[in-house]
Nucleic acid binder design. Structure first.
Lengths: 331, 331
DNA sequence: CTGTTAGCGCGTTCAA
DNA sequence: TTGAACGCGCTAACAG
């Protein structure tokens, strides 16, 4: 591969000049500029990004920390959005692996890992319910960072998330319009912001609608289809049963299975409304609240770009959408 | 962040010495070595990987080219496998974005992109049915590379894939054992190696079993559930119908839907056997051939590591597994 | 407008 | 066993 020195030599100019045309700096005669460009093209020259990073401490690379490791449908789509916008801008994406170095004695922090690789910014996603103090160092550093679904802000940090409160409200209102006033909820794990926001939306909306909140109809669990299945078995045993269940899709699938296994039907015996619009929900004809996952990724990436470019920025909250399928019935 | 100079200064040695202990080189007194290590620890020092890359042209980073962009269930799992092994070895993963640089005049080749970022090797996946001449330059270069599902080899190149021929054989044999001798196949797009291998397995096995091959029962299409649905509608119209359908899961789901929509049943009227074991297949109770996707990623990563370390290597073909659910019936 | 020079942080001879 | 000095490829003052 040709280096800047080769080009300088061939073009009979100094490498400083080559560097200037490379970066489109002013103060280069149009004529020499064209000549240099021609030589570059002829030699298929492209600047070595490593060397460039070393001297500018900019790498055109953004880092991603993602403990969920793309196993989660949600973050795969977010990742797509992130890639969409960074790709256009010429960035590549460095995916930080989770494992520790085999023979290391240092416990690398997010900040250190990022600075070590000279990434221009980091995307923080897939942390779930987690102690946020682990991010203190990052927040105080000058490393640009954007969190997904964790509302942390700092001088170089912000976040994006869906409007989960409003999303839950949409679900409950829709149920209400169909005549449902007895609606149970399965909420996600404590400490996971989106889960608690959805619960808040549930409570607030019941209140607005003048419906009494019944704590017996609220369940909480880590996410799994099995959990949804089990909770629904409990609900069926209840003396006073709800007529509808509001639960994130992963739960809702289990809820539907449990209902069917009891010889009952959705939406005949219970209406079920989900949250997330996962791929499976379509196959279960589950009415649900959809998040704009790719949009979240794109919004996050744009925010990160703003921070990197020292523009002003503030958190982005994206609206959700009601996707009506066949799991809710008017009563 | 402390640099090697800081450490040298604090430890009152030269940076050459620091570098030597850093790389565990011989020729440094145990005493000084320990002293330097201590200073490193105290200052939480870690070498800057960019600078290191520049001087060694090794980056402890591997690149991934993936036009499918993780949208494909298959490659997400492969990616997980890749990450598993590289994480342990202290590598991070650079995900090359697809887009071109906004203001570039050079059409970057895989080799150039890789060299430009100084990655130690590249993983090539998600290319589908594609003109392999585009990889010629990479094959001839000294950049270590491993392909997934494209059988390319070179002095620094090899590949991994599942044993698709044998996988198809397992499917057809299973069907045969259940009494099926009339089995249709929907095959994937022409030029996609795994698809054609599965077709070869289908034909060979029919032949071995002494069953006549009926071209009217073979369909070909790009992958989609809709295509499976449509093909099955055709099959149902056939004068002489097969009793079983062999099709990749994504097709098979559509096949099942079409059968059900006609008021027929699986496996009552048709047996269906898939290939891939996608997440949905479980929900359709589809009997299928499962690939070890994570294993493919791990195998690929290990191969790449071998090439990087100049060890000998050769392609890896992984076995498949029959996953019996409820979509096939004895007749 | 162009070129000289000094870094960026590290690895690596080669002397001492 | 240690260290001075140079190079990796590029950017960024500063002179000319």
């Amino acid at each position: 591969m040709a280096t800047i020195n080769d080009i300088a030599e061939i073009a009979k100019v100094s490498k400083a000049t080559v560097s200037k045309v490379l970066n489109n700096y002013p103060g280069v005669k149009e004529e020499t500029k064209e000549h240099v460009l021609k030589v570059m093209k002829e030699n298929n020259y492209w600047p070595n990004s490593i060397a460039r990073s070393l001297s500018t401490s900019r790498s055109y690379t953004i880092g991603i920390f993602d403990p969920e490791r793309l196993n989660n449908f949600f973050f795969r789509d977010v990742f797509e959005g992130v890639e969409n916008v960074f790709g256009i801008k010429g960035y590549d994406i460095l995916y930080f692996t989770n494992k520790q170095w085999e023979d290391t004695w240092v416990n690398f922090s997010y900040t250190e890992k990022s600075k070590n690789r000279s990434v221009d910014g980091v995307m923080m996603m897939g942390f779930g319910a987690v102690e946020t103090s682990q991010f203190d160092e990052l927040l105080e550093s000058d490393m640009p960072s954007v969190f997904i679904d964790i509302n942390l802000v700092g001088k170089n940090t912000t976040y994006v998330s869906s409007d989960n409160v409003e999303g839950a409200r949409k679900a409950i209102k829709y149920l209400y319009q169909l005549g449902h006033q007895k609606v149970a909820m399965i909420k996600g794990p404590v400490g996971f912001k989106p889960a608690s926001d959805r619960f808040i939306g549930y409570q607030k909306t019941l209140n607005e609608l003048g419906i009494e909140y019944n704590p017996d109809w609220v369940f909480s669990s880590p996410y799994s289809t099995e959990a949804g299945y089990e909770v629904m078995q409990e609900i069926i045993k209840l003396e006073e049963r709800p007529t509808a269940i509001f639960a994130e899709d992963i739960f809702a699938i289990g809820v539907i299975q449990a209902i069917r296994d009891k010889g009952l039907s959705v939406p005949g015996d219970f209406s079920v409304i989900g949250f997330d619009n996962i791929e499976l929900s379509e196959h279960y004809e589950l009415t649900t609240i959809s998040q704009n996952r790719v949009g979240l990724g794109e919004a996050a990436a744009k925010l990160l770009l703003k921070i990197i470019d020292h523009q002003s920025f503030s958190p982005v909250i994206l609206p959700t959408e009601l996707v009506i399928r066949k799991s809710c019935l008017r009563i």
